[in-house]
Design a protein around this nucleic acid. Structure first.
Lengths: 203, 203
DNA sequence: TTCCCGATTGACTGGTCAGTCAGCCAGGTA
DNA sequence: TACCTGGCTGACTGACCAGTCAATCGGGAA
């Protein structure tokens, strides 16, 4: 039994090893110009082994995305309903920014190849992505019900603006449009929330 | 001479005819799963003729993008420096929304296949795209200098948030995440500006 | 009428990969 | 020792498609 477990563990490790290699190669070359042989090389593994663990190249990206996106959804859902809406939005923005800080390559792949790739994987995962929008819209609606957000802006609309701003910010980091030092990360999440909630105009 | 002109005109028409067909097919199937033969069929033209007018499939998309994006850049630059910054932002948002209202297929292609396609055409056109961000940032900076925008938010950051919000809104229309009736179009541009400038919180 | 030339045609080629598969190897079991 | 099983290997194949090119067409000029 112990031996069987060890065998399984090794197998799990190899699987993970391939998945991690895939993230690196996808981040470097993009999904489309990544050949499966590139992933195998990066993982230090034979071509065929990739297909021992994964049904297809697509499945690898799907798995990478869903793994992390489900954490995002969980984070949004977990924020307590008693917490002030603004703080809940800050938690969402914070999670996304921290995800990028912690593993920029993975987030780059998720954003570039899935979230923003409306004609390929974005379409496949539209329900999951839409789910996030809806949860954010609920937070906004709650804020309106409490009277801390103005109610002349549609919650779905506000949700798209909020998410769009964050995603564009990450894109800015990913493509070096804006500096990405660690203090930038620290301020970023609050700044998005401040921009969306407080507005550009002084009070 | 007149005959020569007519010949040229016909050629221009055929070229346009192919380009227009390309927009329709790209919008319907996405750039990647569009075969050149699909474009030829849609245009009612022989396969080889496409290559008589265009060097490659890529060139068609590049041309479609640059044609419209240069109009956007011109619009941003044209807004008068004396106009209130908020109104200048409204003009930018208005142009983008009107472009979508006027030719949703073209805008879908531009956004989905270029602007959001960071690993393919987005990369190629990054300078043009970045140019738009910078021009928007200048408007924000001008607003800060005039004291009508708060100056504790980096203009480049505000620019990304603003553009990100608009693009996400168009994406919402494109993928039916939010309703797209004509009164939605009318309000949309102002609503984005109101959200970014005024903020979600009541004053 | 003949010539010319650019517009037009579509069959064909070359290159690229994703995914397959026949078999190898190591180490556990009888 | 002989056998077995499942991780592991990598050469190979079939499908796909962008771009080429040799040939045809049509209409104006001489």
């Amino acid at each position: 039994m112990a031996s069987r477990e060890r065998t399984t563990d090794v197998a799990v490790d190899k699987r993970r090893q391939i998945l991690d290699a895939a993230v690196r190669v996808f981040a470097r070359q993009g999904f489309h110009s990544t050949r499966v042989s590139d992933i195998a090389d990066e993982a230090g593994v034979a071509y065929g082994l990739v297909y021992h663990y994964f049904r297809s190249k697509d499945q690898m990206l799907n798995e990478l995305f869903s793994e992390r996106w489900s954490l995002l959804l969980a984070t949004i859902e977990e924020t307590d309903g008693d917490t002030p809406p603004r703080q809940r939005l800050a938690a969402v923005a914070g999670f996304i920014v921290d995800s990028y800080r912690h593993d920029p390559e993975l987030m780059k792949v998720i954003i570039v190849e899935v979230t923003r790739a409306a004609n390929s994987f974005g379409r496949t995962h539209l329900p999951e992505i839409r789910n996030a929008y809806e949860l954010i819209a609920e937070i906004v609606a709650e804020g309106q019900a409490q009277g801390v957000f103005r109610d002349d802006i549609d919650p779905n609309f506000a949700s798209l603006s909020f998410y769009g701003a964050i995603e564009q910010l990450l894109s800015g980091w990913i493509f070096d449009l804006i500096p990405s030092g660690s203090q930038d990360f620290d301020r970023a999440a609050d700044l998005v929330v401040e921009t969306i909630c407080g507005g550009l105009e002084p009070r």
